[in-house]
Computed example of a mutant assay.
Amino acid sequence: MQKRIKNLFKDNFYIIAILITITIAYLSLMRMPKLKESFNNIDKVYHLSAYFALSICWLFSFYKKKSLKYVIVISCIIFGIIIEVLQATLTVYRTGDYKDVLANTLGILLGLFVFNQILKKITVNSY
C-alpha cells in the first residue's frame, strides 16, 4: 500500500504544488462571502494551513535537490508577501495584513520543519 501511495505522489508533486499555488492566489484575490467566525482571527489558521501545504508540496517536488530547500522557503515567503500586497493594491474588498504574512511564514517554517523530519526518518530507515 505504501509503495502505491509513494508511486502516485512521486511524479505528481509538481502538479499538486502548482495547483496549490494557483488556488492560494485565486482564493486570496477573489471576493469572499462574509462568514461567521467561531473565534477571532480564524483566518490566520487558514493562512498557516494553506502555506504549510504550499511549502510541503514544493519541498517534496525538489526533495532530491537539497540545495534548493531554502530557495523554496524564501520563494514561498515572498509569494505570501506579494499576495498580501496585491490584496491591498488590486482589490477594494480585501486588505493586506502583516499578521497574515506572519501566519503564512509560520506555516512555511512549519512545513520546512515537517519536511526535514520526514527526510530524516526516510534517511534513517533506508540504511
Rank of each mutant, 00 (worst) to 15 (best):
N12Y: 07
I77K: 08
S55R: 00
N40M: 02
I24A: 04
L54T: 00
Y70E: 11
V92S: 14
W58K: 10
W58C: 11
I74T: 13
I74R: 06
E37R: 02
D43M: 13
L54M: 13
L29V: 09
I78F: 15
I83Q: 07
I83T: 04
L59T: 00
Y70V: 05
Y14C: 01
T89C: 06
I42N: 04
T23P: 06
E84C: 00
K44E: 04
V101W: 00
K99Q: 06
Y14E: 02
L86A: 14
T23W: 11
T95R: 06
P33R: 09
I74G: 08
D43H: 11
Y93W: 12
T105R: 03
G80D: 05
K69E: 11
V73R: 10
L54K: 01
I16G: 01
L106D: 07
Q87G: 09
I74P: 06
F13Q: 03
F52W: 08
V73P: 08
F62T: 06
I77E: 07
F79C: 05
A25V: 15
A17C: 09
L59G: 02
E37H: 03
V101K: 01
I83V: 12
A88N: 13
Y70T: 04
G80F: 00
M32N: 15
V71G: 10
Y51E: 04
K44N: 07
Y98M: 14
V101G: 03
L54I: 02
A53F: 11
I56V: 14
A103L: 02
T89E: 13
T105C: 08
S55T: 15
F62I: 04
S55W: 03
I72L: 12
G80P: 06
C57W: 00
F52I: 10
K36Q: 14
I82R: 12
G107T: 12
A50R: 09
